[in-house]
Design a protein around this nucleic acid. Structure first.
Lengths: 115, 115
DNA sequence: AGCTTGTACAAGTTATTGCTTGTACATCCG
DNA sequence: CGGATGTACAAGCAATAACTTGTACAAGCT
């Protein structure tokens, strides 16, 4: 019964804390559709390159980002599955939202018909 | 153009930060279906009453709790609508069917590509 | 009126966060 | 090779968070 090494969706804490910062959410917006090198991400902010690098570190550690090295650059992208804990949280506290989300999201898991 | 007084769903920051704590999530679980007095909430934790009161304060300020006074007690309950910002966040980043479809369409009709 | 109960407010402490500046590396390029 | 570029690591600092203990205060009970 060892823990699975893959950080599939560990503690919601890290994810939620990571998301609770506007800068970091902005980073996620930037990389949600395509990979971007750290420098280009940093260029979007008035923060220093290092500060942005630290934010990236937080996001990465929360499992929200994938990192790929290409030459001297590091390319980051949103790791969508890592939002699973948030979805779970939401569906735990907002059953209405569960229904809504199911309609929108869970196309692959058609629940047994109402009756 | 005054602000609307109702704290419908202010900054996602406060909500997310409030949610990023296990104790506070536990509180929300306790009051998600029925009102509970502060003391009864506090009784569920090893923390001091004051610590729990402070957590309640954070949740309340984030708009996640309603408070109702009854005699000497204060009854709290989850304010479900306040999770709206989280839902928005999720739908912004979650690659649900709709987004995928949209992405696919955009990919098939590429807007100004790389160059 | 006093005692007891339910709860918040206040101040102090320690750990954590978000930032800054400074520096160390790799990798590419001439 | 040596310099420029892209990026992370390191240390320091001020602000904030999560507690603790102590206290105030409003409501109810006898």
């Amino acid at each position: 019964m060892a823990e699975q090494k893959q950080p599939t969706s560990a503690a919601p804490d890290a994810v939620l804390r990571a998301l609770a910062d506007p800068h970091r959410r902005q980073i996620l917006r930037l990389v949600q559709h395509a990979e971007l090198p750290a420098g280009q991400i940093a260029a979007s902010f008035t923060l220093t390159q290092q500060a942005v690098s630290q934010h990236i570190g937080v996001l990465k550690q929360a499992g929200l980002l994938t990192e790929r090295r290409e030459g001297t650059r590091r390319l980051y992208a949103l790791r969508h599955e890592s939002l699973e804990p948030v979805r779970e949280l939401l569906s735990e506290f907002w059953p209405d939202a569960l229904s809504r989300l199911k309609q929108a999201i869970e196309t692959d898991h058609p629940r047994p018909p109402k009756r």
